[in-house]
Simulated scan of single mutants.
Amino acid sequence: MLLILLAMAAGAADGWSFLGMGKAFVANMTGNTVLLGISFFHLHGALHPAAALGGYVVGVALASYVTGRHARRIQEENLEPPERVIWSRAVSWILLAECACLAAAEAVWFARCRGAGIPDYVPLIFVAVCIGAQSGAMLQLRVPGIVTTYITGTWTQMVRGLTRVITGENIAAPVEKPEFEEQLRMQGQILVAYFASAVLTGWLFYHAAALTGVVPVICLGVAGIYGMLRGGAYSLSD
Score class of each variant (00 low, 15 high):
L5H: 05
L6N: 07
A13R: 06
D14G: 07
G15I: 02
S17E: 07
G20F: 10
M21T: 12
G22I: 03
G31N: 09
N32E: 08
N32D: 11
L36F: 05
G37H: 06
S39Q: 05
F41L: 06
H42D: 04
H42E: 05
H44T: 07
G45K: 07
G45A: 08
P49R: 03
G54M: 01
V60Q: 05
L62M: 08
V66R: 06
R69H: 10
A71R: 12
E76R: 12
R84G: 05
V85A: 01
I86D: 08
W93G: 08
A100Q: 03
C101V: 14
A103I: 03
V108I: 12
A111C: 10
R112M: 10
C113G: 13
G115N: 12
I118S: 06
I118R: 07
D120T: 14
L124R: 08
A128M: 07
V129F: 06
G136K: 04
L141W: 05
V143Q: 06
G145R: 11
V147S: 14
T148A: 04
I151C: 10
T152C: 08
T156S: 13
Q157A: 15
M158K: 14
R164K: 15
R164I: 13
V165C: 12
V165M: 13
T167N: 15
I171Y: 11
A172D: 14
A172Q: 13
A172V: 15
K177V: 15
E182G: 14
R185E: 08
Q187D: 11
L191H: 03
S197C: 01
A198L: 00
A208Q: 03
L211P: 10
T212I: 06
G213V: 06
I218R: 00
I218M: 01
C219L: 00
C219I: 01
C219G: 00
C219V: 01
I225L: 00
I225D: 01
L229K: 02
L229E: 03
L229H: 00
G231C: 02
S235L: 04
L236R: 04
S237A: 05
D238N: 09
D238E: 08
